[in-house]
Amino acid sequence: PDSPRTRWTKSLLSLLGDQDGAQLFRTFLERDKHVDTLDFWFACNGFRQMDINNTKTLRVAKAIYKRYIENSSVVAKQLKAATKSYIRDVIRRQQIDSAMFDQAQTEIQSSMEDSAYQNFLTSDIYLEYI
């Protein structure tokens, strides 16, 4: 099998798809107080898998909105205003759909690829691990 180094340097997605990689990246982000970006990214994936007709799904959509989007959290700061207002409208109308966080997730993912992921690959925590 490939070494962690080979797997994790391929792409952010290959890092996040690996249990140890995701865990180490999480520890790295905790130091920077940016762990919410990672939790939000996973929450979007989890939300997409939920049954849209289950009442729990609306509650989860609201929880994601409250926790990461409506305030001035590290996630909200990295999202476009139009993306945030789109999600706010969907929540207000209670007309949720499985793809409602896709655009927001894409924006957060791009942001992680451009900065946190690059910084992770040169961080002490990563270098010590490999």
């Binding site: 996040l16 798809g17 690996d18 249990q19 140890d20 990689g21 995701a22 939790d39 996973f42 929450a43 979007c44 994936n45 989890g46 939300f47 898998q49 939920m50 729990k56 509650r59 989860v60 609201k62 929880a63 994601i64 409250k66 926790r67």
Partner: peptide, 20 residues
């Protein structure tokens, strides 16, 4: 009834990678 926080945490955990 589960709290929104619990539901959110479950949602996050469900999407995390399992054993390699």
């Amino acid at each position: 009834l589960e709290s929104e926080d619990d539901l959110l945490q479950k949602c996050i955990t469900s999407a995390m990678p399992k054993q390699n």
